[in-house]
């Protein structure tokens, strides 16, 4: 799981190291870190923006270990759906129950349709849709695309996939 956080450190030596140590100890990986030494919060602490990759089950433990060292987590926003793929569907998209097509992906729990643009030229003509799917990981994305592909096949829709990866 990828998590973006803002934490606050006291302005004493060794604090940054103390904040990063537990991440590595818990098998995490630092994706980015922004540290502005000259910025201060009204509380006199130094704010740090940090994005890490960490198994979800270790997140509470990390926050607890930070707490022991006097480090506070001010904001926490997870980037749960980090994989994104754009696809095209062509066919009678609305009349083959668009809602159930989207549900096939959304009901997986690991992938979601986050954007859909539909163009309908005329009643008897086939529609086109651009669909963006997000998923929790690469494997989950492959699985979500397989599910959508089966759904499209069942409904006589043509699905156009990207060149790379599938």
């Amino acid at each position: 799981m990828r998590i973006a956080m803002e934490i606050e450190l006291k302005d004493i030596p060794g604090q940054l190291l103390g904040a990063l140590g537990p991440i590595a100890d818990l098998g995490g990986n630092i994706i980015s870190i922004a540290h502005q030494r000259d910025r201060r919060t009204p509380r006199g602490t130094i704010p740090i923006k940090i994005t890490i990759e960490l198994p979800e089950k270790h997140l509470d433990e990390l926050i607890a270990r930070w707490h022991e060292r006097g480090i506070t987590v001010m904001q926490k926003g997870e980037e749960r759906l980090k994989e994104s793929v754009f696809l095209i569907l062509i066919g009678h998209i609305v009349h083959t129950d668009l809602k159930s097509t989207i549900d096939a992906v959304d009901s997986t729990g690991f992938a979601e349709v986050v954007d859909l643009t539909l163009m309908m030229p005329g009643i008897d003509e086939e529609s086109s849709a651009g669909i963006t799917i997000k998923a929790t990981g690469k494997k989950e994305m492959e699985r979500a695309i397989e599910i959508l592909e089966q759904e499209a096949k069942k409904k006589g829709l043509l699905m156009i996939k990207p060149l790379e990866g599938f």
Binding site: I88, I90, G91, T117, M119, P121, E125, E126, S127, S128, A129, G130, L158, I160
Partner: peptide, 9 residues
Amino acid sequence: RITPDALRL
């Protein structure tokens, strides 16, 4: 089955 709409999207 490719439509001009699909190409535009």
